[in-house]
Design a protein around this nucleic acid. Structure first.
Lengths: 220, 220
DNA sequence: TCATTAAATACATACTAGTGGTATGTATAG
DNA sequence: CTATACATACCACTAGTATGTATTTAATGA
């Protein structure tokens, strides 16, 4: 194949193939050759021209997939006519979470923590980032400032809620539990969060139910 | 090297070397050759005579390291003269947790979730196992049966507490936070657990403080 | 405005060191 | 004598590199 006039198309193709494979087979279970084989006609040279390592492909693929979701969550922060408490509920309302879940469902990560260990590590790391630099902690602090939230340990509460939401309520790396169990988890999280001053709202239950439906439809 | 009269010594040497390397460099970052190089004079043939794969070495190394700790925690279950609530507090008291932490501290896992992703995945998986088949859920159910614990969602509460204890209170895969922050986390977890009917007891604070000291002394 | 050329880009090809794992040989203990 | 505990030699495959080649873009001059 000769030189492409629009190399960003090639990059997109590489990232699409990589994302699917990384999710289905894990990072270590996916070889560069696997990716190349999905790019009909293309060779390893092309891949290593656009990316300098497998690691970089991995990160780029997920950053690209997550970008619109991160953007959507961030967009709420600037809004002026909402209290912190209202924004907090919004963060875990269906319209904020379900699009992310639909993306994950399409990517079909392996329901085995060890196979998906790298993805799991990213979600773990991301839970802390989300609390610190992302949306959750800023929203909580906004709520404390405007008097709509009373929380003595905002940072810790944010981390705990974020961890549980990402690694426990999202059925990413483990077999899908029965719907009632997932709802029980959500109810449990709501109670626990309330104990440290965070009212996540009962929409979390609806969110969880919708997540379950998406996951179930996707054939888990 | 000729044939050893006591092959279990060879096995022990392999597992010792493997454990240290897997912790320090992660699973993928450790090659069989790395392990062999630590077994002076021995070769890959010896390793593959005793273990059939890298995976098996990994599992055997950690099972061996964890065995005494698991045993110690299990030993509490049979005791008859304690209520479930008392046993629950015991599970997170210093004498139950600190030995485990000292083991981890000696192994020095990399404070990077991605590098330690396989260990992280094991801890994650283990958190669910601990709730389901391990000590936590049985103890809670014992407490419900004897009237010392009032918990509406024992399974969910156990999972949540287990996850937070293993992935948030233990400073395994992330840089060590300041002591006050770790104590704030512990306080936060105690409050959240109380909200779903589990009294972890204030010993958790002492446990956390001791864990921090061990970690700090180990040079994190 | 357009042809010519130079340089930068987008790939393909061929190769390397190192990996997990195996097949097989050999010496020793039971 | 046999089974075990190793050592030796090898294999297919991996991430990554060095280099070659064709094509697009930019610069130039008229």
């Amino acid at each position: 194949m000769g030189r492409n006039k629009y190399p960003e198309e090639t990059v997109a193709k590489i990232l699409d193939a990589a994302l699917e494979l990384f999710c289905a087979q894990g990072y270590e279970g996916t070889s560069i050759q696997d990716i190349v084989d999905r790019l009909d006609g293309m060779t390893k040279g092309a891949v290593y021209h656009h990316f300098k390592s497998k690691e970089e492909i991995f990160n780029a693929a997920f950053d690209r997939a997550m970008a619109p979701i991160v953007e959507h969550r961030r967009s709420m922060l600037g809004v002026g006519n909402m209290t912190g408490a209202q924004k907090l509920k919004r963060l875990y309302a269906p319209e904020s979470v379900v699009p992310q879940i639909e993306l994950w469902a399409r990517m079909r990560p392996a329901a085995d923590p060890v196979k998906s260990s790298r993805l799991l590590a990213m979600q773990y790391q991301g839970s802390f980032d989300e609390s610190a630099d992302g949306c959750l902690l800023p929203v909580i602090e906004e709520g404390i400032a405007d008097g709509s939230i009373a929380c003595e340990c905002p940072r810790e509460a944010a981390e705990a809620v974020s961890l549980l939401a990402n690694l426990w309520l999202l059925p990413l790396f483990r077999p899908l539990e029965p719907k009632e169990r997932m709802l029980a988890r959500a109810q449990c999280l709501v109670q626990m969060a309330a104990a440290v001053g965070l009212d996540l709202g009962n929409e979390v239950l609806q969110t969880t139910a919708q997540i379950w439906d998406v996951w179930d439809r996707a054939g888990w």
